[in-house]
Design a protein around this nucleic acid. Sequence first.
DNA 1: GGAATCCTACTACCACGGTAGGAGGCGTGT
DNA 2: ACACGCCTCCTACCGTGGTAGTAGGATTCC
Lengths: 136, 136
Amino acid sequence: MSETGIELGAAELEILRALWDVGPATVRQVMNHLHERGRDLAYTTVQTMLTRLEQKGFAVSNKADLAYVYRARVSRERMSRSRLRVLAHQLYDGSAGPLVLQLVRSERLTPQELAELQTLIERLDGKDRNTGRQRR
Amino acid sequence: MSETGIELGAAELEILRALWDVGPATVRQVMNHLHERGRDLAYTTVQTMLTRLEQKGFAVSNKADLAYVYRARVSRERMSRSRLRVLAHQLYDGSAGPLVLQLVRSERLTPQELAELQTLIERLDGKDRNTGRQRR
DNA sequence: GGAATCCTACTACCACGGTAGGAGGCGTGT
DNA sequence: ACACGCCTCCTACCGTGGTAGTAGGATTCC
Protein backbone atom coordinates (compact mmCIF):
# COMPACT_ATOMS: atom_id res chain seq x y z
CA MET A 1 0.00 0.00 0.00
CA SER A 2 2.65 2.46 0.93
CA GLU A 3 4.81 4.09 -1.70
CA THR A 4 8.07 3.08 -0.14
CA GLY A 5 8.67 0.33 -2.60
CA ILE A 6 11.03 -1.39 -0.24
CA GLU A 7 9.45 -3.27 2.58
CA LEU A 8 11.82 -5.17 4.77
CA GLY A 9 11.59 -5.75 8.46
CA ALA A 10 14.55 -5.33 10.74
CA ALA A 11 15.30 -9.03 10.97
CA GLU A 12 15.05 -9.53 7.25
CA LEU A 13 17.43 -6.67 6.76
CA GLU A 14 19.81 -8.31 9.18
CA ILE A 15 19.88 -11.41 7.06
CA LEU A 16 20.36 -9.46 3.88
CA ARG A 17 23.18 -7.73 5.57
CA ALA A 18 24.81 -11.01 6.35
CA LEU A 19 24.73 -11.73 2.63
CA TRP A 20 26.46 -8.44 1.97
CA ASP A 21 29.04 -9.14 4.62
CA VAL A 22 29.95 -12.68 3.76
CA GLY A 23 29.00 -12.80 0.12
CA PRO A 24 26.96 -15.62 -1.39
CA ALA A 25 26.21 -18.12 1.32
CA THR A 26 24.12 -21.05 2.37
CA VAL A 27 21.61 -20.97 5.16
CA ARG A 28 24.13 -22.51 7.48
CA GLN A 29 26.85 -20.09 6.59
CA VAL A 30 24.57 -17.16 7.17
CA MET A 31 23.51 -18.64 10.47
CA ASN A 32 27.08 -19.19 11.57
CA HIS A 33 27.99 -15.67 10.64
CA LEU A 34 25.14 -14.34 12.72
CA HIS A 35 26.06 -16.53 15.64
CA GLU A 36 29.56 -15.13 15.55
CA ARG A 37 28.13 -11.66 15.81
CA GLY A 38 26.12 -12.74 18.81
CA ARG A 39 22.83 -13.02 17.01
CA ASP A 40 21.29 -16.33 17.92
CA LEU A 41 18.72 -17.51 15.45
CA ALA A 42 17.52 -21.01 14.69
CA TYR A 43 18.54 -22.58 11.44
CA THR A 44 14.98 -22.62 10.19
CA THR A 45 14.49 -19.02 11.11
CA VAL A 46 17.38 -18.02 8.94
CA GLN A 47 15.99 -20.23 6.25
CA THR A 48 12.58 -18.62 6.45
CA MET A 49 14.12 -15.19 6.22
CA LEU A 50 16.19 -16.08 3.21
CA THR A 51 13.14 -17.51 1.51
CA ARG A 52 11.21 -14.36 2.18
CA LEU A 53 14.05 -12.24 0.93
CA GLU A 54 13.99 -14.22 -2.26
CA GLN A 55 10.23 -13.93 -2.59
CA LYS A 56 10.54 -10.21 -2.21
CA GLY A 57 13.25 -10.01 -4.79
CA PHE A 58 16.09 -9.03 -2.53
CA ALA A 59 18.03 -12.21 -3.00
CA VAL A 60 18.38 -15.13 -5.38
CA SER A 61 19.36 -18.65 -4.72
CA ASN A 62 20.74 -21.43 -6.79
CA LYS A 63 21.44 -24.98 -5.91
CA ALA A 64 25.08 -25.75 -5.44
CA ASP A 65 25.54 -29.43 -5.02
CA LEU A 66 24.71 -29.80 -1.39
CA ALA A 67 22.61 -26.80 -0.52
CA TYR A 68 21.15 -23.65 -1.94
CA VAL A 69 23.44 -20.67 -2.07
CA TYR A 70 21.84 -17.29 -1.57
CA ARG A 71 23.12 -14.11 -3.01
CA ALA A 72 21.95 -10.54 -2.43
CA ARG A 73 20.25 -8.95 -5.39
CA VAL A 74 20.30 -5.42 -4.15
CA SER A 75 23.38 -3.60 -3.05
CA ARG A 76 23.89 -2.12 0.31
CA GLU A 77 24.17 1.26 -1.36
CA ARG A 78 20.87 0.89 -3.11
CA MET A 79 19.21 -0.08 0.12
CA SER A 80 20.88 2.77 1.84
CA ARG A 81 19.62 5.28 -0.68
CA SER A 82 16.16 3.86 -0.52
CA ARG A 83 15.95 3.95 3.24
CA LEU A 84 17.33 7.44 3.37
CA ARG A 85 14.85 8.62 0.85
CA VAL A 86 12.00 7.15 2.82
CA LEU A 87 13.31 8.80 5.93
CA ALA A 88 13.62 12.14 4.19
CA HIS A 89 10.02 11.89 3.12
CA GLN A 90 8.74 10.76 6.46
CA LEU A 91 10.46 13.54 8.33
CA TYR A 92 11.12 16.41 5.97
CA ASP A 93 8.92 16.17 2.92
CA GLY A 94 11.67 14.62 0.91
CA SER A 95 14.38 17.11 1.51
CA ALA A 96 17.72 15.50 2.27
CA GLY A 97 19.45 18.57 3.58
CA PRO A 98 18.35 18.29 7.19
CA LEU A 99 19.42 14.68 7.33
CA VAL A 100 22.87 15.47 6.06
CA LEU A 101 23.29 18.30 8.48
CA GLN A 102 22.10 16.15 11.34
CA LEU A 103 24.52 13.43 10.47
CA VAL A 104 27.52 15.64 10.07
CA ARG A 105 26.70 17.51 13.22
CA SER A 106 25.90 14.69 15.57
CA GLU A 107 27.78 11.70 14.26
CA ARG A 108 31.55 11.86 14.27
CA LEU A 109 33.02 11.38 10.85
CA THR A 110 36.56 10.27 10.28
CA PRO A 111 39.02 12.74 8.76
CA GLN A 112 38.97 10.71 5.58
CA GLU A 113 35.23 10.95 5.36
CA LEU A 114 35.37 14.64 6.00
CA ALA A 115 37.93 15.09 3.28
CA GLU A 116 35.91 13.07 0.85
CA LEU A 117 32.84 15.02 1.70
CA GLN A 118 34.78 18.19 1.18
CA THR A 119 35.87 17.38 -2.33
CA LEU A 120 32.42 16.11 -3.14
CA ILE A 121 30.90 19.37 -2.12
CA GLU A 122 33.40 21.36 -4.08
CA ARG A 123 32.57 19.37 -7.12
CA LEU A 124 28.86 19.93 -6.69
CA ASP A 125 29.42 23.58 -6.02
CA GLY A 126 31.38 23.96 -9.20
CA LYS A 127 28.81 22.09 -11.20
CA ASP A 128 26.03 24.26 -9.92
CA ARG A 129 27.88 27.33 -11.00
CA ASN A 130 28.87 25.98 -14.40
CA THR A 131 25.52 24.54 -15.17
CA GLY A 132 24.18 27.99 -14.65
CA ARG A 133 21.08 26.55 -13.07
CA GLN A 134 19.12 29.48 -11.74
CA ARG A 135 21.64 32.14 -12.68
CA ARG A 136 19.59 34.76 -10.99
CA MET B 1 13.66 -6.77 22.24
CA SER B 2 15.63 -4.78 19.74
CA GLU B 3 18.07 -2.14 20.85
CA THR B 4 16.62 0.61 18.73
CA GLY B 5 14.85 2.23 21.62
CA ILE B 6 12.45 3.94 19.28
CA GLU B 7 9.70 1.81 17.93
CA LEU B 8 7.20 3.59 15.76
CA GLY B 9 5.42 2.31 12.73
CA ALA B 10 5.11 4.35 9.59
CA ALA B 11 1.56 5.43 10.29
CA GLU B 12 2.34 6.40 13.84
CA LEU B 13 5.21 8.45 12.60
CA GLU B 14 2.88 10.14 10.17
CA ILE B 15 0.67 11.23 13.01
CA LEU B 16 3.57 12.42 15.07
CA ARG B 17 4.67 14.37 12.11
CA ALA B 18 1.32 16.05 11.90
CA LEU B 19 1.87 17.20 15.46
CA TRP B 20 5.21 18.64 14.45
CA ASP B 21 3.70 20.35 11.47
CA VAL B 22 0.65 21.90 13.03
CA GLY B 23 1.72 22.11 16.63
CA PRO B 24 -0.47 21.00 19.53
CA ALA B 25 -3.74 19.78 18.13
CA THR B 26 -6.86 17.83 18.80
CA VAL B 27 -7.72 14.57 17.11
CA ARG B 28 -9.92 16.41 14.70
CA GLN B 29 -7.31 18.98 13.83
CA VAL B 30 -4.77 16.31 13.15
CA MET B 31 -7.26 14.46 11.02
CA ASN B 32 -8.12 17.55 9.03
CA HIS B 33 -4.49 18.30 8.48
CA LEU B 34 -3.94 14.82 7.14
CA HIS B 35 -6.97 15.05 4.92
CA GLU B 36 -5.60 18.21 3.41
CA ARG B 37 -2.43 16.39 2.57
CA GLY B 38 -4.45 13.69 0.88
CA ARG B 39 -4.15 11.15 3.65
CA ASP B 40 -7.60 9.81 4.38
CA LEU B 41 -7.90 8.28 7.80
CA ALA B 42 -10.95 7.78 9.95
CA TYR B 43 -11.35 9.93 13.01
CA THR B 44 -11.00 6.95 15.29
CA THR B 45 -7.91 5.79 13.53
CA VAL B 46 -6.22 9.07 14.21
CA GLN B 47 -7.43 8.83 17.74
CA THR B 48 -6.00 5.37 18.19
CA MET B 49 -2.68 6.50 16.81
CA LEU B 50 -2.52 9.48 19.11
CA THR B 51 -3.34 7.29 22.06
CA ARG B 52 -0.59 4.90 21.12
CA LEU B 53 1.86 7.72 20.64
CA GLU B 54 1.04 8.87 24.12
CA GLN B 55 1.40 5.39 25.57
CA LYS B 56 4.79 5.14 23.97
CA GLY B 57 5.84 8.46 25.34
CA PHE B 58 6.06 10.33 22.06
CA ALA B 59 3.21 12.68 22.82
CA VAL B 60 1.27 14.07 25.73
CA SER B 61 -2.29 15.22 25.92
CA ASN B 62 -4.20 17.50 28.20
CA LYS B 63 -7.83 18.32 28.26
CA ALA B 64 -8.67 21.69 26.88
CA ASP B 65 -12.28 22.47 27.50
CA LEU B 66 -13.82 20.54 24.66
CA ALA B 67 -11.32 17.96 23.66
CA TYR B 68 -7.87 16.65 24.43
CA VAL B 69 -5.01 18.50 22.87
CA TYR B 70 -2.01 16.42 21.89
CA ARG B 71 1.50 17.71 21.75
CA ALA B 72 4.64 16.00 20.50
CA ARG B 73 7.11 15.13 23.22
CA VAL B 74 10.06 14.38 21.00
CA SER B 75 11.40 16.74 18.43
CA ARG B 76 11.69 16.02 14.78
CA GLU B 77 15.45 16.39 15.14
CA ARG B 78 15.66 13.87 17.90
CA MET B 79 13.65 11.42 15.89
CA SER B 80 15.78 12.12 12.90
CA ARG B 81 18.98 11.42 14.78
CA SER B 82 17.56 8.28 16.23
CA ARG B 83 16.40 6.90 12.92
CA LEU B 84 19.66 7.76 11.25
CA ARG B 85 21.59 6.05 13.96
CA VAL B 86 19.53 2.93 13.62
CA LEU B 87 20.07 2.99 9.90
CA ALA B 88 23.79 3.44 10.29
CA HIS B 89 23.90 0.41 12.52
CA GLN B 90 21.70 -1.70 10.33
CA LEU B 91 23.71 -0.99 7.23
CA TYR B 92 27.21 0.04 8.22
CA ASP B 93 27.98 -1.06 11.73
CA GLY B 94 27.20 2.34 13.09
CA SER B 95 29.38 4.42 10.86
CA ALA B 96 27.63 7.50 9.59
CA GLY B 97 30.09 8.37 6.86
CA PRO B 98 28.62 6.24 4.11
CA LEU B 99 25.18 7.62 4.77
CA VAL B 100 26.36 11.18 4.48
CA LEU B 101 28.23 10.47 1.30
CA GLN B 102 25.23 8.71 -0.16
CA LEU B 103 22.98 11.61 0.65
CA VAL B 104 25.21 14.28 -0.72
CA ARG B 105 25.90 12.29 -3.82
CA SER B 106 22.45 11.14 -4.76
CA GLU B 107 20.09 13.65 -3.26
CA ARG B 108 20.22 17.19 -4.62
CA LEU B 109 20.95 19.70 -1.92
CA THR B 110 20.13 23.34 -2.26
CA PRO B 111 22.96 25.85 -2.52
CA GLN B 112 22.14 27.02 0.97
CA GLU B 113 22.41 23.55 2.35
CA LEU B 114 25.67 23.03 0.56
CA ALA B 115 27.04 26.24 1.96
CA GLU B 116 25.94 25.36 5.44
CA LEU B 117 27.48 21.96 5.09
CA GLN B 118 30.64 23.57 3.88
CA THR B 119 31.08 25.79 6.90
CA LEU B 120 30.11 22.95 9.18
CA ILE B 121 32.85 20.82 7.74
CA GLU B 122 35.40 23.54 8.00
CA ARG B 123 34.56 23.96 11.61
CA LEU B 124 34.95 20.25 12.28
CA ASP B 125 38.12 20.13 10.27
CA GLY B 126 39.59 22.92 12.28
CA LYS B 127 38.66 21.28 15.53
CA ASP B 128 40.22 18.03 14.43
CA ARG B 129 43.44 19.76 13.59
CA ASN B 130 43.58 21.68 16.84
CA THR B 131 42.81 18.63 18.84
CA GLY B 132 45.79 17.14 17.18
CA ARG B 133 43.93 13.94 16.48
CA GLN B 134 45.87 12.34 13.62
CA ARG B 135 46.79 15.30 11.49
CA ARG B 136 46.97 13.40 8.24
C1' DG C 1 -36.66 18.16 25.14
C1' DG C 2 -35.36 15.70 21.06
C1' DA C 3 -32.04 15.65 17.14
C1' DA C 4 -27.62 16.38 15.54
C1' DT C 5 -22.91 16.64 16.56
C1' DC C 6 -18.73 16.04 18.90
C1' DC C 7 -15.93 13.64 22.02
C1' DT C 8 -13.83 9.54 24.57
C1' DA C 9 -13.36 4.66 25.67
C1' DC C 10 -13.35 0.07 24.31
C1' DT C 11 -13.13 -3.70 21.17
C1' DA C 12 -11.99 -5.89 16.84
C1' DC C 13 -9.76 -7.63 12.91
C1' DC C 14 -6.39 -8.60 9.60
C1' DA C 15 -1.72 -8.65 7.56
C1' DC C 16 2.81 -9.13 8.36
C1' DG C 17 7.11 -9.91 10.56
C1' DG C 18 9.87 -12.64 13.88
C1' DT C 19 10.65 -17.03 15.39
C1' DA C 20 10.64 -21.72 15.12
C1' DG C 21 9.22 -26.93 15.04
C1' DG C 22 8.29 -31.21 12.59
C1' DA C 23 8.42 -34.33 8.61
C1' DG C 24 10.80 -36.32 5.33
C1' DG C 25 14.80 -36.88 1.75
C1' DC C 26 19.73 -37.87 0.81
C1' DG C 27 24.56 -38.89 1.62
C1' DT C 28 28.25 -41.03 4.41
C1' DG C 29 30.83 -43.55 7.70
C1' DT C 30 30.82 -47.95 10.27
C1' DA D 1 21.76 -51.73 6.63
C1' DC D 2 21.44 -48.10 9.63
C1' DA D 3 22.19 -44.14 12.25
C1' DC D 4 23.63 -39.46 12.05
C1' DG D 5 23.83 -35.19 10.16
C1' DC D 6 22.44 -31.85 6.98
C1' DC D 7 19.10 -30.09 3.82
C1' DT D 8 14.40 -28.49 2.17
C1' DC D 9 9.42 -27.83 2.64
C1' DC D 10 5.47 -26.75 5.09
C1' DT D 11 2.98 -25.19 8.95
C1' DA D 12 2.31 -22.53 13.08
C1' DC D 13 2.05 -19.13 16.57
C1' DC D 14 2.26 -14.78 18.58
C1' DG D 15 2.92 -9.76 18.85
C1' DT D 16 2.26 -5.48 16.77
C1' DG D 17 0.81 -2.03 13.68
C1' DG D 18 -2.80 -0.15 10.58
C1' DT D 19 -7.46 0.64 10.30
C1' DA D 20 -11.80 1.16 12.04
C1' DG D 21 -16.68 0.37 14.30
C1' DT D 22 -19.76 0.91 18.21
C1' DA D 23 -21.51 2.62 22.54
C1' DG D 24 -22.42 6.14 25.29
C1' DG D 25 -21.60 10.86 27.61
C1' DA D 26 -21.75 15.85 26.71
C1' DT D 27 -22.97 19.90 24.14
C1' DT D 28 -25.52 22.59 20.95
C1' DC D 29 -29.23 23.73 18.03
C1' DC D 30 -33.82 24.43 17.14
